[in-house]
Amino acid sequence: MIEFDTPLVPGANARLSPDHLRPTAAGVALVGQRCQDCGRTLFPKTGICPGCRSENLADAELPAQGTLYSWSVVYAAPKPWRTPYTIGYVDLAGDVRVFSHIAGDPATLRVGMPVALSAAPEADDGAAAAPFVFQPTAKENA
């Protein structure tokens, strides 16, 4: 008998299961996994390490600070997304890249700028909501 134990619970949240987010004193933290055999960091969680096929994975809180690799302001998206919204890739220490909505004025965003995690704002009625956001930590000159 094969044990089937995956931490993703689609029924609980079709977009990201709630155990990927942990409340902290500073607000919120992302919870991914660290492979206990090869050390690879994974986000979101999975049942098996793509690096070494180990199933020995432990929950790991990810750094809340990162750098913005790139971003785009989306003006055409399927419902229930309400446009425009900004998405990007954020590189966190520990060698993991996280896809995220990016808060703040898009005109102030710069490649490589520092960004920090925060809880997602409440979505408007009927609109899709991001599970979390990253936003610039320092004022940058436009």
Binding site: S72, Y85, A130
Partner: peptide
Amino acid sequence: EDWEVANGLVMPALYAMRARRYMH
């Protein structure tokens, strides 16, 4: 079912992020 797609990724934006980085 893909988590980035479920959270708002669309194909034009994926290429746009590549483009922005290339331009940079």
